[in-house]
Amino acid sequence: MNKQKKAAPTGSEFKPLTKTNIAENKRPYKVELALNSILHNGPRGITQPEAFTSYRESCLHTTISSLKHEKGINFISQPDFNTVVYFNQKPFSRYWLASDKDRVNALKLLNAYRSNRGLTKVSYEAWHKPDYKAA
């Protein structure tokens, strides 16, 4: 009945933590998923039900607000009456990036989050003519 205690892993059993294998396992932040979805949808914009379907976002208005107030990315919002399912239901808001400058700032922020996780940069082209105000 000689029970030996197992020693701490050494040699081939031990995998040192490096920036690479930490980043591989790091999950994306909610704001990163939101930015990716907003930029991917382009001129169509995004609503709460679409965000929930896309990446399980339950508080899109909060994420949009934090992007606006903390990161300086402006949005346009309007009620989307196509989201009304039940009688007397308020419509969900549809959010768009307000200008091309905001689209560029959102893309920079998204790529900063991606580079922290060791991923390559993404590129979303402008979806309007340069003389238009909305992105």
Rank of each mutant, 00 (worst) to 15 (best):
M1R: 02
N2L: 13
N2Y: 11
N2V: 10
K3A: 12
K3C: 10
Q4L: 12
K5S: 02
K6Y: 10
K6I: 14
A8T: 09
P9C: 01
P9I: 02
T10I: 08
G11A: 06
G11C: 05
G11E: 05
S12I: 11
P16D: 12
L17A: 14
L17F: 15
T20L: 13
A23M: 06
A23H: 01
E24F: 11
K26E: 15
R27Y: 11
R27W: 09
P28C: 03
Y29D: 13
V31A: 12
V31K: 14
E32H: 01
L33V: 12
A34Y: 00
N36I: 04
S37T: 05
I38K: 05
H40Y: 15
H40V: 11
N41T: 03
P43W: 02
P43F: 06
R44Q: 11
G45M: 09
I46M: 06
I46R: 00
T47S: 01
P49W: 01
E50H: 07
T53I: 01
Y55E: 09
Y55D: 10
Y55W: 15
R56S: 12
E57T: 04
S58M: 06
S58D: 06
C59Y: 11
L60F: 07
H61E: 13
T62A: 04
T63Y: 02
I64M: 08
S65Q: 03
L67T: 02
L67G: 03
H69C: 07
E70R: 14
K71P: 01
K71C: 07
K71W: 08
G72Q: 11
I73C: 00
I73Q: 02
N74H: 13
F75H: 04
F75L: 00
I76N: 00
S77V: 08
P79I: 08
V85Y: 05
V85S: 00
V85D: 05
Y86S: 10
F87K: 09
F87E: 08
F87P: 07
Q89I: 03
Q89S: 05
Q89T: 02
K90Y: 03
K90T: 07
P91W: 09
P91F: 09
F92W: 12
F92R: 13
F92G: 03
F92Q: 14
S93K: 04
R94I: 10
R94F: 04
Y95V: 08
Y95F: 15
W96Q: 04
L97M: 05
A98I: 06
K101E: 14
K101D: 14
D102H: 01
D102N: 07
V104H: 09
V104K: 12
N105P: 00
A106C: 05
L107T: 01
L107E: 08
L107I: 00
K108E: 06
K108V: 02
L109Y: 04
L109K: 02
L110W: 04
L110Q: 02
N111P: 04
N111M: 01
A112P: 03
A112W: 00
Y113Q: 04
R114P: 02
S115M: 14
R117M: 14
G118Q: 07
T120L: 10
K121P: 09
V122Q: 09
Y124C: 06
E125V: 04
E125Y: 08
A126K: 15
W127K: 06
H128V: 10
H128C: 11
P130L: 08
D131M: 10
Y132N: 04
K133G: 10
K133D: 11
A134L: 15
A134I: 15
A134W: 15
A135P: 08
